[in-house]
Design a protein around this nucleic acid. Structure first.
Lengths: 213, 213
DNA sequence: CGTTGTGAAGAGCTTCACAGCG
DNA sequence: CGCTGTGAAGCTCTTCACAACG
């Protein structure tokens, strides 16, 4: 399926965007779409879309465009999100609880099957039918549960410890929501979600815009 | 203060990261740091750091490095986050509530002073001492409250409507947590927070890693 | 002497322009 | 005929290498 060795990181990011926009278009009844129209909806250059899609194969039909449903399926397949991923969440704070209640995870195929925290007052509590387990037991439990992805929602000072447990558990990927860098071996993929970066960016742009007039 | 016309978007992103790491280093007692050490902590090239910082001014001392506290202050000033920003949140679902409870916003100078929703059952409810107001009244209320930034945490199908109210209210920047693109005039800065992009990226990397061996 | 600040070289991603094809 | 797929050109951001300097 993969045509080329290296795929730009930016392409992967856009593919997630394309799926989002395509699913909206599908809901609105679109069956076929050209790269030009999809580009407009995504605020991207049409060539960019064609090139991004071509990395994974010729999904389009010349003279016609792309079949919406088929394209959604193909992109999801290419990204590896055409299946269920089992995840563990570490850190039952405000953010952790919100993510656990967030229906979108399940809808998109990410099932949170294990919940961990080091606070004795939280251990044993049930959230959405799942018991909160002591973080120390993560390595033994993760295997049992078949977890492949870890979500860190601890305070920053405990993020590295959470990561260590996850790594010890043999997890292959981590999404870190805590505002702290974490160290991990080469083979573990780490992604950082930091909404303050986005807030800072907005603040900077507003400040810049004002200083210019 | 600004030395150059155009500053790469990526630089702004990294500056937010530098602040995060520098604050950790400061807590650990560091007073001076070289670009080489900071680079290691941020997982970035040392030249990159020097170049990023040089866009805003010569913050360093040759032969010595950067004074940690001074650098934090300078970066924050450059980004425009050395002051209080007043924000409004639209959409009191799970995610919205979690963000409202998240102490980090206030700690970083982003004060959520208005909460809006279109659900009659939620209007009038109090969250953290702030009353939930009908979204329709956003344009009138935002001015009163001195709001400059809007946070959208509605379901995707209501994101554009929320954005319209915010734009009508004269807001200058929007951080959209809903999984939907929104249209906005040129002068309004829009940022998207989408953790599924990060999850997709992790899923892709795991899939890729496995198919390679 | 050691580290910053920076022009120049390099890498990687984006856009163009058009051949290829349904 | 129209839209995709793609080599080549263009551009932006990153890294190198070293002069500048406290």
């Amino acid at each position: 399926m993969l045509r080329s060795e290296h795929i730009p990181r930016a392409t992967i990011k856009r593919l997630a965007l394309y799926v989002q926009v395509l699913e909206t278009l599908k809901r609105e009844g679109a069956e076929v779409i050209s790269s030009e129209l999809l580009a407009k909806a995504c605020d991207v250059n049409p060539s960019q879309i064609r090139k991004d899609l071509a990395y994974f194969g010729g999904f389009g039909v010349r003279g016609v465009g792309y079949y919406v449903q088929e394209l959604i399926t193909s992109i999801k397949q290419s990204l590896g999100v055409d299946r269920i991923w089992r995840a563990a969440l570490v850190g039952v704070g405000n953010l952790g609880k919100a993510l656990l209640r967030h229906q979108e995870f399940r809808r998109r195929g990410f099932h949170i099957v294990g919940i961990f925290d080091c606070d004795p007052f939280k251990i044993g509590e049930e959230i959405g039918g799942i018991e909160v387990i002591c973080s120390k037991r993560l390595p033994e439990k993760a295997g049992e549960l078949g977890v492949e992805i870890g979500l860190i929602t601890t305070p920053p000072e405990r993020a590295q410890r959470a990561a260590n447990y996850l790594i010890e558990a043999g997890i292959k990927g981590i999404v870190n929501f805590a505002p702290a860098r974490i160290a991990a071996p080469e083979h573990v993929c780490v992604e950082y979600v930091d909404f303050f970066h986005h807030l800072y960016n907005v603040a900077f742009n507003i400040t810049l815009g004002q200083s210019q007039r």
